[in-house]
Amino acid sequence: MTTPTPSSPSGPSRLDPEPTPRRDFLGLASLWAAASTMLFAAIGMMRLPKAAVLSSPSKKYLVQLPDSLAPGEAFEPPGRAVVLFRDEDGVYAMSKVCTHLGCLIKKNGDGFDCPCHGSRFGIDGSVVKGPAPQPLAWHKVTRVGEAYMVDEGVAVPTGAKEQA
């Protein structure tokens, strides 16, 4: 607050605006130092919970299909959320994870049912019924000798099959 004051020949008037006292400067400095420290600490702490490396299991693995696997018959390797088929055109792998809320689908007739919210998928993974927003994902399959390498990390378009 500045008040117009008559200039006095005998030094500054006590009504003149005071220069910022040292005490105020120190107070403001500590306030801003604390505020910026809190801000950067908060940013740093928010950085921590998002892991740089995820502790997920490997997404690439080999699958040995049984010779007796008939066309249209599903092969579900245990411990993996994937289903494989072999027909005249080749071998293909589909994710068993429902695109709705992540439950595992189950083969039922000529399609798949999701037990959690009743989504139904066709044999090629297309959505037939229910709340699933996306068709089932197809994974890349590569022939390695007699076996097949499934890579869950690489998506391929529906209908892309690996020559048997």
């Binding site: 919970p49 998002k50 892991a51 995820l54 502790s55 997920s56 299991p57």
Partner: peptide, 16 residues
Amino acid sequence: GFQRQLLLGSDVVGEE
């Protein structure tokens, strides 16, 4: 995807 990963600390429901 960010929210899910923040909650699970992983791609799957596991130890994290």
